[in-house]
Computed example of a mutant assay.
Amino acid sequence: MRAALGVMLVATLAACEPVGMTGPGQPAVRLMGDVVVAAPDGYCVDPVVTRPQTGFALLAACAAMDPDGDGSFPDDVALITVQVGAAGSAAVAGQEDAFRAFLETPQGAALLSASAIGGPVAVRGTQANTNAVAVYTQDAGPPGVAGTQSTSWRLFTDVKGRLVTVSVRGLEQTPLSQDGSLDLVLQVLGLLRGANGGTATAT
């Protein structure tokens, strides 16, 4: 089962960008704006798809990137993306309730759809706390990356004056529950806060 999962995840990663894997990644990466992204236990930064100069990182199971190694898969397997916005793009801290309310409108759903892999999404739930707004969405059509779930959590937070978006999408073969997916996105938030001098905030 784990071997089959590894093959599937490598294939899914390859679908994100048409290049081959080059080996295991690192546990952290520094993106533009000096924003440090650290991976949860069992996850590594994908060295091929990640683009530090554009503020984008893909985190995936380390074992999938190093099929010849002896590492084990994390209990919850998913594709995790982190996108850091431009300088001055911060939009969450102090405006959490308004941000959350906007995401629940048709205009908010349209904005999420425009920035999602796979096209239109429906908003299934939102949560907010200090400097953190999360939204649970479901794809209206097939997922943009074959083999992944149609549902995902996306979280928005401000780091060093920039809007940072974290998304977690499980695999179709080993789907994540809504709570499991939220737990993973909150792990990334906690690591993001810790690595950048902030305080982790649960939604």
Rank of each mutant, 00 (worst) to 15 (best):
M21I: 05
M21H: 04
M21K: 00
P24H: 04
Q26W: 05
Q26D: 15
A28I: 02
M32T: 14
G33D: 10
G33A: 11
D34C: 02
V36H: 08
V36Y: 00
V37M: 07
V37C: 03
V37I: 13
V37G: 02
V37H: 01
A38V: 14
A39M: 12
A39H: 12
P40V: 04
P40H: 01
P40A: 02
D41F: 10
D41T: 15
D41V: 15
G42K: 10
D46G: 04
D46E: 14
D46V: 06
P47C: 05
V48N: 06
T50W: 05
T50P: 02
R51G: 03
R51I: 03
P52G: 11
T54R: 11
A57C: 03
A60K: 07
A61C: 09
C62W: 10
C62H: 15
A63V: 13
A63E: 13
A64L: 03
A64M: 00
M65Q: 15
P67I: 10
D68S: 13
G69L: 12
G69M: 10
G69F: 12
D70C: 09
D70M: 12
D70P: 06
G71N: 09
S72K: 14
F73P: 11
F73V: 11
F73A: 14
D76A: 15
V77T: 10
L79S: 07
T81P: 04
T81I: 06
V82C: 08
V82K: 04
Q83V: 02
G85E: 00
A86L: 01
A90D: 00
A91F: 05
G94H: 06
E96R: 14
D97G: 09
R100M: 09
F102Y: 15
F102M: 08
E104C: 14
P106G: 08
A109P: 05
A110P: 01
A110M: 07
L111F: 06
S113V: 02
A114L: 09
S115N: 13
A116Q: 11
A116W: 01
A116G: 04
P120N: 04
V121R: 04
V121E: 05
A122T: 13
A122M: 06
V123Q: 09
R124Q: 13
T126Y: 08
A128C: 03
V133A: 08
V135Y: 03
T137C: 12
